[in-house]
């Protein structure tokens, strides 16, 4: 009973987190994004000054030296061939600017890439698939999908360490307010760490073109307030709900080929090709962010995923209404 109450509480709490839908890189909310923001402002300031000076000079020249109707067209202006002093000046000054920029770039690059994250970290392995994200918590033995739950780190003491891998083609992990992007490349481990300053939901996208449904390979990072992450993890580590009322529906689900691709922990469904469904209903979205997880959307999705996400690898199973109803009600029991 307590577990159910807690689950209900969590259900209400998670959607209550503020959702950062506009992923503005100039509103950073984690250390790597903050460093990138700072150097961005610095570089934009320098380039703006250059733009104003050089652009102003070009416009001034265009306006000041335009030919006027009163000019004698036969008379050519003074023929000036060049000036070594001026050439040296506008070679040396840009070189100096470039050296400043190189120095700052070197420092921030090393700072972000070689930074030691805070002592207590949560390790997460994110594995890119054509067109969804597998999310593994190796220290907790947990596999989930598409929504990456991490602890927020308002005091800068809890970070999340991401190992990035790919199952098929190259993808790229980009949640702009938390960090710049890092690619997920087959046969290679890449790393990234984030420490969201505020609890909330951060949106992002796959940023490397990866095939038909690249556009709908969306990222959601859910940063829990202190203490809540552990509660979420405890919920997720439980085996799938065993609701006695669902025996028939469960049998129906397990008789269909759904189980070849999807896992529901503690049941015969052990497929690895698609997202793990053990706690499907704890997720806010389906289809890697393409639909919100409502009863109606879930039913339509299972009926024919090719409507919302044409080209994705989940086929329409051509279920009868009765089969569809039973599969949906079983999935809805997977809290």
């Amino acid at each position: 009973m307590i577990v159910h109450a807690l689950a209900a509480l969590l259900q209400t709490q998670v959607p209550g987190l503020p959702e950062h839908r506009v992923a503005n890189i100039f509103k950073p909310l984690a250390s790597p994004a903050q460093s990138e923001y700072e150097i961005a402002v610095f570089v934009i300031a320098i380039t703006t000054v250059i733009f104003v000076v050089v652009g102003g000079l070009i416009v001034f020249t265009i306006v000041r030296f335009r030919r006027r109707p009163s000019d004698d067209t036969r008379q050519e202006p003074p023929q000036v061939y060049g000036s070594n002093q001026i050439e040296v000046a506008w070679t040396v000054i840009p070189i100096l600017i470039v050296f400043v920029l190189i120095g700052v770039t070197a420092r921030i690059t090393a700072g972000v890439q070689n930074a030691s994250p805070p002592a207590s970290t949560v390790k997460v392995t994110v594995i890119g698939h054509q067109w969804w994200w597998e999310v593994v918590y190796p220290d907790f033995g947990l596999t989930t999908a598409n929504e990456i739950h991490v602890p927020a780190s308002p005091d800068g003491k809890t970070a999340t360490y991401l190992t990035l891998r790919s199952m098929d083609v190259i993808h790229s992990f980009w949640v702009p307010q938390l960090s710049g992007k890092t690619d997920l490349i087959p046969n290679r481990d890449n790393f990234l760490w984030i420490d969201p300053k505020e609890a909330g939901i951060y949106l992002g996208n796959c940023a490397e073109y990866c095939g038909t449904q690249h556009a709908n390979m969306l990222l959601r990072v859910i940063a829990h307030p202190p203490g809540d992450f552990e509660k979420w993890m405890a919920e997720q580590q439980k085996p799938a709900e065993q609701n006695p009322q669902m025996t028939e529906a469960k049998a129906m689900f397990e008789s269909l080929s759904c189980i070849n691709c999807h896992t529901v922990k503690g049941t015969p469904a052990v497929g690895k090709f698609g997202p793990d469904l053990t706690h499907l209903m704890s997720r806010e979205t389906i289809g890697a962010g393409v639909l919100t997880n409502t009863a109606e959307n879930l039913r339509n999705w299972i009926n024919d995923p090719q409507v919302a996400k044409p080209g994705c690898y989940m086929p329409s199973m051509k279920l009868t209404d009765q089969e569809l109803g039973q599969v949906v009600s079983y999935l809805e029991s997977l809290k």
Binding site: A40, V104, I108, T109, K181
Partner: peptide, 11 residues
């Protein structure tokens, strides 16, 4: 500027 590019790349 590599760190700025991590944000801007492929956008």
């Amino acid at each position: 500027v590599a760190p700025f590019d991590w944000q801007l790349h492929d956008s």
